[in-house]
Amino acid sequence: MRHCLFGLLMVASLTANAAVQTQEIPYTAADGTQMKGYFAYDDAIDGPRPGIVVVHEWWGLNDYAKRRARDLAELGYSALAIDMYGEGKNTEHPKDAMAFMQTALKDADAARNRFVAGLDLLKAQPQTDTAKLGAIGYCFGGKVVLDMARQGVPLEGVVSFHGALATQTRAVPGSIKARVLVEHGSEDSMISTDDIAALNVEMVKAGADYQFVNLPGAKHGFSNPAADTHQKDGLDVAYQKAADERSWADMQRFFEQTFGTAQTTAAQ
Results as ranks from 00 to 15, higher is better:
195 D>F: 03
192 S>A: 01
240 Q>S: 10
49 R>Y: 04
90 N>D: 12
169 T>I: 02
213 V>E: 04
69 A>L: 03
22 T>Q: 14
101 M>T: 13
58 W>V: 02
100 F>Q: 10
210 Y>H: 01
198 A>S: 11
207 G>F: 12
99 A>T: 12
92 E>G: 07
31 D>P: 14
148 M>D: 11
201 V>D: 14
67 R>T: 14
73 A>Q: 08
177 K>Q: 11
195 D>I: 10
99 A>M: 08
117 A>N: 07
4 C>F: 13
98 M>E: 15
245 E>T: 11
80 L>C: 09
99 A>R: 12
37 G>F: 09
234 G>N: 00
226 A>P: 00
112 R>Y: 08
168 Q>C: 06
253 R>F: 07
120 D>R: 07
66 K>D: 00
136 I>L: 08
264 T>A: 06
180 V>S: 03
56 H>M: 13
268 Q>Y: 12
212 F>I: 03
147 D>Y: 13
187 E>D: 14
53 V>Y: 08
46 D>F: 01
179 R>T: 04
162 H>K: 06
30 A>N: 14
35 M>K: 05
185 G>S: 07
57 E>M: 08
160 S>C: 04
143 K>R: 14
75 L>M: 15
1 M>L: 05
204 V>C: 00
94 P>Q: 04
123 K>P: 09
161 F>N: 09
204 V>G: 08
136 I>N: 07
132 K>C: 06
240 Q>L: 03
178 A>P: 08
216 P>R: 04
124 A>S: 15
59 W>T: 05
20 V>Q: 02
48 P>G: 04
186 S>R: 05
